[in-house]
Design a protein around this nucleic acid. Structure first.
Length: 952
RNA sequence: GCACAUGUGGCGUAAUUGGCAGCCGCGCCAGACUUAGGAUCUGGUGCCGAAAGGCGUGGGGGUUCGAGUCCCUUCAUGUGCACCA
């Protein structure tokens, strides 16, 4: 009898479940360790073999840490709000909750088969009211907070009100101003400071999805989900003031052990740039002053933002974004028509159009001028859509000789350039602008002769002194738009009382997602929640679980709730905390749990969340930390991004106008059409022709033109997807070779971070390995044939060789796991088992520790062997064996002897010999003399325990 | 365009971090056992060469007694950002 993985794996999965083997203690004398996976969105397609890659790695690590004596938190849950379930609901009318539940059940079934050591008692689902109650609660905290730049922390909004009361000057004197304002005025003012706020913002509007999208949900001008066009639109929207945290999000990256590429992506996304604001006075033009628009008004200055104030004497025009607020006021009557046409043109260009022809230069002259702050010369004001309204001040000073974009614009419209920096090397200013921050300033008045960096310093000082502007930092990061005009998300816990947004009281949470007749916008374009009957805040609201607050509607009063819901990333921005205290009904997390578990020690997930989830979760963590609710300011100490598993598609070649299929090597002789064929009926590129005939009705009578009696398929690496017939499901692998083999194989494939195509072909290697491992504990010493299932482990003491193999393996495995090099550990297990098989070792002293070190990787077979060894408790809580270095000490080393770096032969020397002794010994060798060919060696290098190199 | 990552046998990969390039596995070749093999076991397998030997880590150059590893340069592939002043 061979090892029966089907029976054994099922047996242990049941025991783990029944005995709650992996339930995590809330309190423990053991040190804590938190291993987290990015939880999945439960899609209808189920898991393919790519998904568990990270889960397997984290599971190995979690199991290893348990063996090392840690109290390990290793939970799993579902990011279960989101678009696909809702799109499906629109098509079928089925409630997204039903779809979601079905999908989760399928995910769970698939996950269970792989033997993960999750503590399922702590499962979270973001769409569960018990969970989103607290997502809403955190939103309320954000609403009730502002960012105090003095303390550099979020604080309760009341401290801001205090401040307003205290310091606001007003016509009627100090102290009165705030209280003299109407409630609406106060609310509007506070909204400008709240961390969750309502404002008119330019949003990415996706008409097909009927919702706004965040910047990272838009890729190349179309929606990430579905690929629909996205346009810019001004809308009243809820946003989160993540920009308040921009500096901390950037600086704290240095303190966390994340991959450089993710950190770099976040740095780019935050996009900090230091520069200067600078005011330009608008030239008093009789035309403008007497014009209808500007009459009697004192025109404000145009403020630009620049990182290169040193180039101030090279400015030849100023460009405003088409949306700039001053445009209508400054435009000369003569230019009015063209300017208005241009603004209309710029507005109607969709994002995709704009991005598609980035190189196309558009712009128009306004007819107005500014005055150069130092020279007093008049400088024309242009409009150009290369200037973004949302960044800086929406206005730039254009220095065509030293800025690529200004150069292109000036060239296109024939505007003069003025060179004011001499590059250190030859430069053709006709062809390119010189943008580098190196060289000497010329034609620049008081900056003449200075190096660029010195000039920047000096000019900022002068600008500040003259009150023309000041040093300023800008961020590319925008505030996060938080509302989605969709159904399947957390309702925003807000109602509107006389146009003033108010948040629900804590005891009114959760605000339950209401039933609607359709999951579509209303006829008037309101979000789906507007369809809900009586979607209003009032006493005993049917939608909120708690009791209504004092402030809420009284009597007949009923105030409309917010119609939009939260975006997909809301729930995932704090889920790592909820696992610590998943069933707390009183708080989002208890102080004790937060203090014990701190933050995630190891976080594993895809790199695609670099600027989305991973930025938002850092933001929320810092915010909750500011309020003193949690003790940490970063969610995860260490982050690993697992690579993507691609699919390998197989192709059959159908001969045109026939039902004949020609083998890969012979296809050139025919006119053929390549067709995707299900990879599950192809093995090592050989098609299972019977399975192929059975696969589809039309293949029943297929004929084949074979080569060497086989049908060989073609193959190609593509994304793993249903339509390409290259999806390999983990269930099938588990069925065929077992969960342990799947786990080992996914790790064996290569380094975790690397993307690689899935190729089932090699899996027989790890499958054989498991059988070989099993045989070590079973075969008789004199019968290597695996015909016996008799457990046969001896209690004799192990010999030196056996101990050396074991301890060398322990050492390597510890090193590998701690460096997350899971692929090399699998090789090392194979080497170990090969050696022990060779040694015919069946000693308990060796095989018992071996079972433990292999348990994180192949837990089922390890448990079975462990129990056969006579243990009555789970191997999961055994003690990881320590390396005994004394078994590894070698007394001699076989030195490679090389001549000019080329290895020629080996010579063993005792390790106690000194370099000089070895050098002497080597020279006496006959072999050495042969390679010296009578010459005298120039130099002999002896590296202890490494190499001998003779230079001739 | 900018940033990051990766280039090693037919394939996935390894290399104690500057010291024997190719561990482990797949595939392939040969043999054993077999009615049979998509089972199992044994041996072989970087390339050229009959051998001796030579060549070899994307290409070119450098540092070094010695380079897959360090430096410069260049090419290719993948990913992210993309008029951010």
């Amino acid at each position: 009898m061979e090892y029966n993985f089907r029976e054994v794996e099922k047996k242990w999965q049941k025991i783990w479940k029944d005995e709650k083997t992996f339930r995590t203690e809330d309190k423990s004398v053991k040190p804590k360790y938190y291993v987290l996976d990015m939880f999945p969105y439960p899609s209808g397609a189920g898991l393919h073999v790519g998904h568990p890659l990270g889960y397997i790695a984290s599971d190995i690590f979690a199991r290893y840490k348990r063996l090392k004596g840690f109290n390990v938190l290793h939970p799993m849950g579902y990011d279960s709000f989101g678009l696909p379930a809702e799109q499906y609901a629109i098509q079928t009318g089925q409630h997204p909750e039903i779809t979601t539940k079905t999908n989760i059940a399928r995910y769970r079934e698939q996950l269970d088969k792989i033997g993960f050591s999750f503590d399922w008692d702590r499962e979270v689902r973001t769409s569960n009211p018990d969970y989103y109650k607290w997502t809403q609660w955190i939103f309320i905290q954000l609403f009730n907070s502002w960012y105090n730049p003095e303390t550099n922390k979020a604080e309760n909004i009341s401290t801001l009100i205090e401040k307003f009361r205290r310091i606001s000057p007003s016509p009627r004197g100090q102290g009165e101003a705030w209280d003299a304002l109407s409630e609406k005025e106060q609310s509007d003012l506070l909204l400008q400071h709240r961390l969750a706020y309502l404002s008119d913002t330019m949003v990415n509007w996706c008409p097909q999805l009927g919702t706004v999208l965040a910047n990272e949900e838009v890729k190349e001008g179309v929606s990430e989900r579905g690929g629909y066009p996205v346009e810019r639109k001004l809308m009243k929207q809820w946003s989160l003031r993540i920009t308040a945290y921009a500096d901390r999000l950037l600086n704290d990256l240095d303190g966390i052990d994340w991959t450089e590429s993710i950190k770099e992506a976040q740095r780019n996304w935050i996009g900090k740039s230091e520069g200067t604001s600078l005011k330009f006075k608008i030239a008093p033009s009789p035309v403008i002053l007497s014009g209808v628009e500007g009459q009697g008004e004192k025109l404000p200055d145009i403020e630009v933002f620049t990182t290169r104030p040193d180039t101030i004497f090279g400015v030849s025009f100023v460009t405003l974004a088409p949306e700039h607020e001053l445009v209508s006021k400054i435009t000369s009557p003569a230019q009015k028509t063209v300017v208005e046409e241009y603004i209309a043109f710029a507005k109607n260009r969709s994002e995709r159009e704009r991005m598609a022809d980035v190189k196309k230069i558009t712009g128009v002259f306004t007819g107005a001028y500014v005055i150069h702050p130092f020279t007093g010369k008049q400088i024309p004001i242009w409009l150009g859509d290369y200037v973004l309204a949302g960044y800086g001040t929406g206005a730039v000073m254009a220095v065509p000789a030293h800025d690529t974009r200004d150069f292109a614009f000036a060239n296109y419209f024939g505007i003069d350039k003025k060179i004011i920096i001499t590059p250190p090397t030859e430069w053709d200013f006709e062809k390119n602008s010189y943008d580098e921050k190196e060289g000497k300033l010329i034609d620049s008045d008081f900056l003449n002769g200075l190096e660029v960096k010195a000039a920047i310093k000096k000019v900022i000082a002068v600008i500040e002194e003259k009150g023309l502007g000041k040093g300023k930092t800008n961020f590319r990061l925008r505030d996060a738009i938080f509302g989605r005009q969709r159904y399947w998300g957390e309702p925003i816990p807000v109602y509107y009382q006389d146009g003033i947004p108010k948040v629900l009281a804590e005891n009114e949470l959760p605000l339950l997602l209401p039933e609607v007749d359709k999951y579509l916008p209303t006829e008037t374009g309101e979000p789906p929640l507007a369809r809900a009957k009586d979607w209003k805040h009032k006493p005993k609201s049917p939608f909120s679980k708690g009791t209504p607050s004092e402030e809420g509607g009284k009597g007949d009063d009923a105030y409309e709730y917010e119609f939009s819901t939260m975006p997909g990333w809301a729930g995932s921005s704090w889920y790592f905390l909820r696992y610590m205290d998943a069933h707390n009904e009183k708080e989002f997390i208890s102080k004790e749990a937060a203090n014990y578990w701190q933050n995630v020690d190891l976080y594993i997930g895809g790199a695609e969340h670099a600027t989305g989830h991973l930025l938002y979760v850092r933001f929320w963590t810092k915010f909750l930390n500011d309020l003193g609710l949690i003790p940490v300011s970063e969610p995860a100490k260490k982050l690993i991004n697992q690579g993507m598993i691609q699919g390998v598609s197989s192709f059959v070649y159908r001969v045109e106008t026939s039902n004949k299929y020609v083998s890969f090597g012979l296809r050139k002789d025919y006119e053929t059409t390549p067709l995707h064929v299900d990879v599950n009926i192809v093995n090592n590129n050989v098609l299972d022709v019977d399975a192929f005939k059975a696969w589809r009705e039309e293949n029943k009578d297929a004929e084949f033109i074979l080569e060497d009696g086989k049908y060989i398929c073609g193959s190609e690496v593509e994304k793993m997807s249903k339509s390409k017939w290259n999806v390999v499901s983990p269930d099938l692998m588990v069925e065929q070779v077992g969960a342990d083999a799947l786990r080992l194989y996914e790790m064996f494939l290569g380094p975790l971070e690397l993307s690689k195509p899935w190729n089932t072909n090699g899996i027989s290697g790890v499958s054989n390995f498991i059988r070989k491992l099993w045989r070590l504990y079973h075969a008789d010493a004199n019968n290597q044939q695996p015909t016996t299932n008799n457990f046969n482990v001896s209690n004799e003491p192990a010999n030196k060789q056996e101990l050396k193999t074991l301890h060398r393996t322990i050492k390597k495995i510890v090193h590998d796991i701690e460096n997350f090099s899971f692929n090399t550990s699998v090789s090392n297990f194979m080497i170990c088992v090969n050696e022990l098989t060779e040694l015919k070792c069946n000693k308990r002293e060796i095989l018992e520790p071996l079972a433990i070190i292999i348990a994180p990787y192949a837990p089922h077979v390890a448990e079975e062997l462990w129990s056969k060894l006579g243990n009555t408790t789970s191997i999961s809580y055994a003690q990881f064996p320590e390396v005994n270095e004394s078994y590894l000490i070698e007394s001699a080393f076989s030195y490679p002897v090389s001549f000019n770096g080329k290895t020629r032969f080996f010579q063993e020397y005792d390790l106690s010999l000194t370099k000089e002794q070895i050098e002497k010994e080597v020279l006496t060798l006959e072999q050495t003399q042969k390679y010296l060919e009578g010459k005298t060696p120039k130099k002999i290098i002896v590296v202890h325990n490494k190499i001998v190199n003779i230079v001739v």
